[in-house]
Design a protein around this nucleic acid. Structure first.
Length: 116
DNA sequence: CCCGTGACCGACT
DNA sequence: CAGTCGGCCACGG
C-alpha cells in the first residue's frame, strides 16, 4: 500500500485493515498529535481506553511502519526521554526540535502547553 | 496455552 | 538522584 495517500483518519483505518483493534486505535490517536506537541506512552494508553497498556503501546509504536504519516516520533517516555537505540532516539530528537518543541539536556521539557 | 520480548511506569531503596 | 523491582499488556513463536 502507498502510505503517502493517507490523508484522513478514515484512510488510516482503511490502511490498517487486518491489524488488531488495539493497534488501530493507537495509530489513529498518535495520528492526531499536532505538530509542535508531543504525548507519552502512558497518555496514549489512556486515550485508547487501556490505561495500563502503555507497554503494549510502545510495542506498537516501535514498529510504526506508517511513519511519517503517523507521527510516532512525537511520543516520548513520561519523563521526557527519548527511548530506544541511540540512533533512532537522536533522529526523533531532531524532528521534535525542528517542530519547535523545547528540548533540554536531550530530554523533552514536558509541559501542559506542548502535551497532547 | 505458555513463554519471551519490549521505544514503559511508579514506587521504593 | 540513580538503580532495582514488580506489574502491566499485546503479540509472535
Amino acid at each position: 500500500m502507498d502510505a503517502s495517500r493517507i490523508r484522513t483518519e478514515e484512510d488510516l483505518r482503511e490502511a490498517l485493515k487486518g491489524h488488531s483493534e488495539f493497534e488501530i486505535e493507537v495509530y489513529v490517536t498518535t495520528f492526531k498529535i499536532p505538530k509542535g506537541k508531543v504525548s507519552t506512552y502512558s497518555r496514549i494508553a489512556k486515550l485508547v481506553g487501556r490505561p495500563k497498556a502503555f507497554r503494549a503501546v510502545a510495542n506498537t509504536l516501535n514498529k510504526c511502519s506508517l511513519w511519517p504519516i503517523v507521527p510516532c516520533h512525537r511520543v516520548v517516555a513520561s519523563n521526557g526521554r527519548f527511548t530506544g537505540t541511540e540512533k533512532g532516539a537522536a533522529s526523533r530528537r531532531k524532528l521534535i526540535r525542528d517542530e519547535g518543541v523545547p528540548i533540554k539536556g536531550g530530554r523533552v521539557v514536558i509541559s501542559d502547553d506542548i502535551l497532547f
